[in-house]
Design a protein around this nucleic acid. Structure first.
Length: 494
RNA sequence: GUCCCCAUCGUCUAGAGGCCUAGGACACUGCCUUUUCAAGGCAGUAACCAGAGUUCGAAUCUCUGUGGGGACGCCA
C-alpha cells in the first residue's frame, strides 16, 4: 500500500451560516479538500447552525454556491447541526450521569460578575465554578445550562501535525458550557459530537481554534471516542497584520467572483498563503492535489496580498479556454455590455468574433471583468464615440491630411478586397497580423507619414478607446469589415 | 491581565548545522522591445528581531528578552 494514501482519511469543512463565505474559510476548506484528495480520503461538509439568532438560510445557500463555484466539492450528505439537537441533549445528560458534566443554574449576570472579579485578581477570566459541586436543585427547577466538569489539575495536550506538541495546564481551562439554558448546544460540544459521528480522522482548521482543542480533547475522552489528528493552519492576515476581517480587507468570496477572478486563480493564491512547494508559484488544480502536503504548511500568519493575487489571476487568465471565458462573461459580466450589445452577443456571428478576440485580449488583462470591458467596444457594431483631442495630428494640419489620405487608401484597397471575396472580415481574405503590418508600412511610406502617426488615429477609432488590450494588427483581420469601415469613415470625417 | 501560538527582503516564501557573501515570486526602480498598452525581455534595490549558549561551524538547535498575533462568551 502506498503510504501516502490512506482511504480512512475523512476531513470536513464546518462553516457556520452567519455570514457570506469568508476567504479565510475558503482557505481552510481548500486545505482540507486537498488533503483528502491527496490521501484518497473524503472531504465532507457540515453546517454549524446552532446559533439560531445569527444563522440564516441565505448564508447557507451562499456558502454552497461559492464552494461549488470554486470547485470544492464535498462527498456524502451535508450534516446540519440544527437537525440533531435531541441527540446532543442526550449525550450531555449521559455525561452528567457519569460525573463528567453538571447543571449550572447561574444567570448570565452572575457569570459575568465572577469573570470580572477574576480579571481584577489578574487571573484568566473564567466561570467561578459555583455550581460544580452543587447537589440540590434550586426551587422550581429553573432552566439551566450544562457545563463540562473539566479537571482542576494536570495537563491536557496534543501533537499538532503542523506545530508539534502543544500543552495546557488544566487549571487555566474553563468549565465551558456544553448546552445553553435554552437547550441548544454550543460549538465546542457539537464539534466533537459530530466529528465523532462523521468519523473525522483529521481536524484541519485555523489556529484560532488551538485554544479550543483541549476542551474538545476532554470531550473525546469523556465520550470514550478516538481522537482525530489535529492540524492548525496559520491565520490569514490583513495589511495591518491582524486577522483578516471586513475591517482590513475584502473577505467575501462573492466579491472576488464579481471582480472577475477565476476560481482556480483564487485557489492558487490561497494555497500559497501558508503552503509552499519549493519555488513554484503557479499551480493548476491537478498540481495542487498532487503536490499538497501538511509538512510544508507554514506556522506563522500570512498577509493577504492583493497585488500578488492579481498577478496570479492574470497568469491563469492567459491559460484559460476562450470559450469558457466567454461563458463566464455571459453569466457574470453581462452588465459590462450596456445597451443592445449583450443581446447581440448571443448571435453566432458575434460569438465567432468574440472567440477570435479573446485569445488576444486574455493575454493582456488580469481579470474576466477587464476582459468583458475590453470586449464591449469591440463587439459593439456601431461607431463608438471617441475623444480625438489627444491625437498628434491635431498639431499639424498637413500631417492630418496625409494621414487621412493613407487611411482612405487602405479603405479603398480593403473594400475591394472584401467585395472580390464576398467576405465579411479581412481575416477571411487571408489577412493576418504580418500582412496587415506589411500593408500599413507600405502605405505609410507611400503617403509620407510615420507608421506610428498612422496607427494612432486608426487604433483610436477602430477600438473606440484610448488604450486597448489588443493590437491594431491583430484586430483588423477579426472585426467585421462593416464595423471597421464605419469607424474609419468616422475617422476620416473627424 | 492570563493562557496559547509565532518571528528570513515591504509582502508571499525557499531554507531540516556546512551547498547561504541567504534563493524564487509579487510589488518597486531602471533599461530594452514595440503600432498602443494594462503585455513581453533584461537588470537592480531589499531580509535571517536581539542577546547569550551548544558546535570546528547556526538563518537552521537551546534558553532569555523583545516584538507581533490569537484565545479567554449560554459566538462559531
Amino acid at each position: 500500500m502506498n503510504p501516502s494514501k490512506n482511504a480512512a482519511v475523512r476531513v470536513r469543512f464546518a462553516p457556520s451560516p452567519t455570514g457570506f463565505l469568508h476567504i479565510g474559510g475558503v482557505r481552510t476548506a481548500l486545505f482540507n479538500y486537498l488533503y483528502a484528495k491527496k490521501m484518497g480520503g473524503k472531504f465532507l461538509l457540515r453546517i454549524e447552525d446552532t446559533d439560531v439568532e445569527r444563522s440564516e438560510a441565505r448564508f447557507t445557500t451562499d456558502i454552497l454556491t461559492s464552494l461549488s463555484w470554486l470547485g470544492i466539492e464535498h462527498e456524502e450528505e451535508i450534516l446540519y447541526q440544527s437537525k440533531r439537537l435531541d441527540l446532543y441533549q442526550k449525550m450531555a445528560n449521559d455525561l452528567i450521569a457519569q460525573g463528567l458534566a453538571y447543571r449550572c443554574y447561574c444567570t448570565e449576570t452572575e457569570v459575568e460578575a465572577s469573570r470580572e472579579q477574576m480579571i481584577k485578581e489578574g487571573k484568566k477570566p473564567m466561570y467561578g465554578r459555583t455550581c460544580r459541586e452543587r447537589k440540590d436543585v434550586p426551587p422550581g427547577n429553573p432552566s439551566h445550562a450544562i457545563r463540562a466538569k473539566f479537571p482542576l489539575s494536570g495537563i491536557t495536550g496534543f501533537t499538532d501535525m503542523i506545530r508539534g506538541e502543544i500543552t495546557f495546564p488544566n487549571e487555566d481551562l474553563d468549565d465551558f458550557v456544553m448546552i445553553r439554558s435554552n437547550g441548544v448546544p454550543t460549538y465546542n460540544f457539537v464539534v466533537v459530537a459530530d466529528d465523532i459521528e462523521m468519523k473525522i480522522s483529521h481536524v484541519i482548521r485555523g489556529d484560532d481554534h488551538i485554544n479550543n482543542t483541549p476542551k474538545q480533547i476532554f470531550l473525546y475522552d469523556a465520550l470514550k471516542a478516538t481522537k482525530p489528528l489535529f492540524a492548525h493552519l496559520p491565520m490569514i492576515l490583513g495589511a495591518d497584520k491582524k486577522k483578516l476581517s471586513k475591517r482590513n480587507g475584502e473577505t467575501s468570496t462573492n466579491a472576488y467572483r464579481a471582480e472577475g477572478y477565476l476560481p482556480e486563480a483564487l485557489l492558487n493564491f490561497l494555497v500559497r498563503l501558508g503552503w509552499s512547494h519549493g519555488d513554484q508559484e503557479l499551480f493548476t488544480r491537478e498540481e495542487m492535489v498532487e503536490l499538497f502536503n501538511l509538512e510544508h504548511v507554514q506556522v506563522s500568519g500570512a498577509v493577504f496580498n492583493t497585488e500578488k493575487l492579481i498577478w496570479i489571476a492574470g497568469e491563469h487568465l492567459k491559460k484559460a479556454d476562450p470559450k469558457r471565458l466567454f461563458d463566464i462573461i455571459k453569466t457574470d459580466f453581462a452588465t459590462a455590455f450596456p445597451g443592445e450589445s449583450f443581446a447581440a452577443l448571443q448571435t453566432p456571428a458575434v460569438t465567432k468574433t468574440a472567440l477570435e478576440l479573446i485569445p488576444h485580449v486574455q493575454l493582456k488583462v488580469k481579470l474576466v471583468k477587464e476582459l468583458a470591458h475590453q470586449l464591449y467596444p469591440l463587439l459593439e457594431t456601431s461607431v463608438m464615440p471617441v475623444d480625438a483631442s489627444g491625437l498628434k495630428w491635431n498639431k499639424d494640419e498637413t500631417q492630418k491630411t496625409k494621414i487621412k489620405a493613407a487611411v482612405q487608401e487602405l479603405m479603398n484597397t480593403w473594400t475591394s478586397l472584401i467585395a472580390s471575396r464576398a467576405a465579411t472580415t479581412l481575416g477571411e481574405c487571408g489577412m493576418d497580423h504580418a500582412r496587415v503590418d506589411a500593408e500599413l508600412r507600405a502605405v505609410s511610406e507611400k503617403c509620407g507619414v510615420k507608421l506610428g502617426d498612422l496607427t494612432q488615429p486608426m487604433r483610436l477609432f477602430v477600438t473606440g478607446q484610448a488604450t486597448s488590450a489588443i493590437g491594431l494588427f491583430d484586430l483588423l483581420p477579426i472585426l467585421p469589415w462593416k464595423t471597421i469601415q464605419a469607424r474609419l469613415t468616422a475617422c476620416l470625417q473627424s
